[in-house]
Design a protein around this nucleic acid. Sequence first.
RNA 1: GGUCCCGUAGCUCAGUUGGAUAGAGCAACAGAUUUCUAAUCUGUCGGUCUUUGGUUCGAAUCCAAACGGGAUCACCA
Length: 592
Amino acid sequence: MHIESTIKSTLQAALKEIYGVEEPTIALQPTKKDFEGFYTFVTFPYTKTLRKAPAEIGNALGQYLQEKAGVVSQYNVVQGFLNLSIEESAWVNTFNDLALDPKFGFWPANGQSVMVEFSSPNTNKPLHLGHLRNNFLGDSIAKILKANGYDVTMACLVNDRGIHICKSMLAYAKFGNGETPESAALKGDHLIGKYYVIFDKAYKAEIEELVADGMTKEEAEKKAPLILEAQELLRKWEQEDADTVALWQKMNGWVYEGFGATYQKIGVHFDKIYYESNTYLLGKDIVEEGLNNGVFFKKPDNSVWIDLTAEGLDEKLVLRGDGTSVYITQDLGTTDLKFEDFHSNKSIWVVGNEQDYHFQVLFAIMKRLGRSYADGCYHLSYGMVDLPSGKMKSREGTVVDADQLIADMEATAEARTRELGKIEDFSGEEAKNLYHKLALGAVKYFLLKVDPKKRMLFNPEESIDFQGNTGPFIQYTYVRIRSVMRKAEQMGIVLTTPAQNVPLTEIEKEVIFCLTDFPDRIANAARDYSPALIAQYAFDLAKVYNQLWAEVSVLNEPDEALRYFRILLSKAVGDTLQKALGLLGIGVPERM
RNA sequence: GGUCCCGUAGCUCAGUUGGAUAGAGCAACAGAUUUCUAAUCUGUCGGUCUUUGGUUCGAAUCCAAACGGGAUCACCA
């Protein structure tokens, strides 16, 4: 039995029986703190059709619920608000159902499959804070979709070719002197990133010189010797010149090694990796197809376009006059490829909001081409992470490096832990694992608690705290519960039977109330593609449990039945916190 | 200029899809530990929900306009 669904179905029956109204969906809301009751039904919407006063409707429905629902102990009506108080036995019954269900909160398989593409790193620089937001979002949304019953494939498209890659290759060839990650004592991705910056500096210097000689800036950017050389290198790569390909492979190998270490550290992995070097020529057959069926058209210079003005977009180039691809050409090809490979019902791209327009165009084209999967495509667009100084820019060195950030957070976790001195019996390895869990919990929670589509601010000085609305706060609540569980186990208490009907305090009801909301939160998080809803939920649950902790004692409760209930309640909260944090990709420690 | 996103407490953010007197965390201040982990809890302080109009029983939420911030409108990716 579930309180909320019982009230809803009884309300439907009441509306039909008393007023002859068929209401397919009943909206219940939590009662505001200042009023008596837990659930509130708003009667205002019915005043017009029923031509009765809101309070009158409230009283009639309240009476009906009290008599027939079996879970409503009493009611009160304030204006048009019908506030319902709940029978104590109903709380315990509802709680027993969820506490003894190991899969509580997760939805059964729904027969649908979805691909989540995220991360999409460039192999010319290490990951920074913005990438972390992308990775954590993608990883979390994949987990949330799984919890909703989807069969999920996590995919990654590596941008391993192109002019930007050639820039770092060229700089390395010119200034590298055979440096290796070992000789430089740098992670591979950081070494390559260093040469990307070196290229940019040298390139800018050339431009300045040319401008000083009277060239316009625009012209200088196109004619600087370094950029011409990089373009030449790209041509050689495309012609599969042996030396160029060998250099490319060597440098990419270093980057992959570096990325691998970072991915491992942040707990992100992929089921399928696509490489742009394999897919960049795809899409031309789709251009042909579109020309044949009149979706695309040719301009006199032989370039191919699509007119999307009917969709409120513009004319868009899909193939250059010389027959070479643009970004969207490849994306058309890879989109088809992804669906051919996995036949997913849905496909999600986790990509920053600067590409909103690109994805509008991509999806519109797929629809015009009559792709059956076009309606299942979704761009999970997220905002940038800003610094107090403004935007992050790799080339100007104003980025927060991912590896560095996590290392810093681990150091903070260690300092704080030592200060508190609660784990002095831990081995070095156990302690390291703890610091890592806390560091990752703090960073992931920080980035995921904000609505994805909003841009957010990261203040390195004060942003990532371990107190208040943070990952470690929730981890700490879990740790307290684990401490109780260990002691309960020592007392020989086994948690396999339902709790008896015991008298409950307000705070205990609130904890149960919060628990019952978990499945809906998981469903909403998937519907809105928002891990932030899960983060918020975990925080709410931790907070209400901490309140309970301050008000009542679990293990020291003299009444045996009540003590058993509180232990079981604590376990349910612990399990739910673990699941919720798990959906965010955050692990829980046993002690901290 | 066109299109899209955003604007809520000093700061960082929620606000269950139109409901009651708008909520958290941080910061500041005051308290709580003979008790299961105080990385906790309680309290105080803090608001013209950018502005103006509209829709209605009722608006932070929907519509329109203005203002402010950002993105994008590349034969870059």
